[in-house]
Design a protein around this nucleic acid. Sequence first.
DNA 1: TTGTAAGCGTTATCAC
DNA 2: GTGATAACGCTTACAA
Lengths: 365, 365
Amino acid sequence: MRKRVTLKDVAQAVGVHVSTVSRALDPKTRHLITPEIADRILKASERLDYRPNAAAYSLKTKRTRTIGVIVPDITNPIFPPIIRGVEDALADQGYFAILANTDGKAGREAAIADTLLWRGVDGLVLASVERHDRLVERLLAEAIPIVTVNRRVEREDIASVVHDDRDGMRRVLAHLADLGHTRIANIAGPQSFSTGRERYEAFESVRAALGLDPDRRLVVFASGFNEDEGERCTAELLDGGVPFTAIVCSNDRLAIGAIAALRQRGLACPDDVSVTGYNDMPMLDRLFPPLTTIRIEQYQAGAMAAELLVEMIEEAPEHRKPRHIVLPVELVVRGSTAPPSPARNAARPKGRGRKAAVSENPAAG
Amino acid sequence: MRKRVTLKDVAQAVGVHVSTVSRALDPKTRHLITPEIADRILKASERLDYRPNAAAYSLKTKRTRTIGVIVPDITNPIFPPIIRGVEDALADQGYFAILANTDGKAGREAAIADTLLWRGVDGLVLASVERHDRLVERLLAEAIPIVTVNRRVEREDIASVVHDDRDGMRRVLAHLADLGHTRIANIAGPQSFSTGRERYEAFESVRAALGLDPDRRLVVFASGFNEDEGERCTAELLDGGVPFTAIVCSNDRLAIGAIAALRQRGLACPDDVSVTGYNDMPMLDRLFPPLTTIRIEQYQAGAMAAELLVEMIEEAPEHRKPRHIVLPVELVVRGSTAPPSPARNAARPKGRGRKAAVSENPAAG
DNA sequence: TTGTAAGCGTTATCAC
DNA sequence: GTGATAACGCTTACAA
């Protein structure tokens, strides 16, 4: 591990003082230096392969050029693209990311934020916020630059990058209505998250706008965005006895669970019930059936969040104005949606005989 | 952002000198301090919520307690669990990870390593190495602690955590042989990676040991671990005209491509051809058919790699002895493998009529 | 056992 | 324009 070259080494090589070198190397102060000397300094630092010492820089400036990224769980496939977006955008600006997983536990989240702050991160990208988030309140109080991505908190003064959930839900319902569905169920996500909430609200308002059957019993709320909840909610829907021909799910994993639950009851997707997801996570096109869903720009969202954050960090605190970005979404039609089959519906399945009526099969498998 | 409390503040509060505080706070030097005073210092630092300044610590000690993690692409589902393992284990030891993606480009890899080193990482976890790796050579020359995970380089002096590929391949082939397969094809991974190489070598040696048909034409080499290559290689296998009833793939993504290619030719898995994957990435159980594969302990591998690395970092350089860890694997039998159907095989498909003989369908769809 | 002081590599505030 | 100098917060000989 060869000794690292410092400002002093460069100064010695050129025959000037370190402070001169420091000024010459910083574009903001270079104009203070005689161009000819500045040039020689630049050349020498190049030749010696000088790299500023990050620790010394941080100690002096109180800035680390490091930002923390807090996600629930990197293992959940919607986060990696976001993280890559964040990292790539940060790298472009000479920043680094430190990643931390909360596993959705608020206590852990607070502890993690503490550690990151102590470590001196300049700001935080939060992919794990709830609509009313204690951690965000605290960070706001301490004036730490933050931006939320994917989800947002219900405050205008916190910067965010999210996707157009209302438009997404509108596209899903329009697609289903186009196919001829009128009795459409909804597995809504947890209402403590902005995504769960907004998709649910959009479902209700769009459903009304399209003149679809507004039966309240066709909505059931999942307590988490996962396959198990998708199964449970679907069972609940089927047991409710209210007929429907399609299920709109608040995310892909709920949809995967829904399809599994239907299959357990001897119901086929999309033959008996159409199912839609949300997020377009990887591998969805390889499932059986391939899932119709809403594609969101995860990478782009991460990248923009990082840009927003760096902007805030480099802005003087008093000029910081939290920006909000809403990214467009896209409908991806695949095999899990089809026109409702006239002779069938979920509550009164008929057909190939291998199917059982819901009433004969009250409990989930 | 309230002012941070420093050693000086604690010293002032207790009425001693900073150096005394520093010593009292470090378990290694605490014995030098009068217990009673040490106690008061500990209490005060607790009360004031003292946090050591990471930059100052690094500047002084040249250690950052940060390690770099280089992966090809975090978006590839086998990496997130590894990364979580690394991060969790590091967190336990008071270290942090900075993540970087190379996208498999050697040039980018070198640049990234440079940046990380300049940033002062204490060591590196490499999940992206080739069997003969230039970057590793360079890091070795500079005496940077490194450990490779998942893959390894062909040098005994580089610490590594890998999985037992020979045993995995043995289990796969034994399973297939048990089912009655004798003509088994292999889509081998890139031979520049230890995984691709070792799985291929194990395939050959186990195939011989089990007395299976050793036809060389039943092996084809993928140039990447992805679905497209799986499709291409399967087409090549089918076009080769040598009959087989099963395809062993070097990873899951190749297997997914293989199944797609079979379907394009009107061949069903596992009815006509059994297919196996390797890695057990997420969602495999939701595919159609669910994929039989080898499960590897990704999280555990990441965690052990991190522990190994920290151990090396904290060891005096002259005592560093690279350790090699090989983790056990497990066979997961799902729906993509079945006994060979006597009337059928890939080269002479018969059956439901919707199938076409290979010779009628020479090119991939 | 504790205090003193130097120094890690930078940037910022002075003088000159 | 450039150089000297202090300071960021910490660790660590060395002195007391």
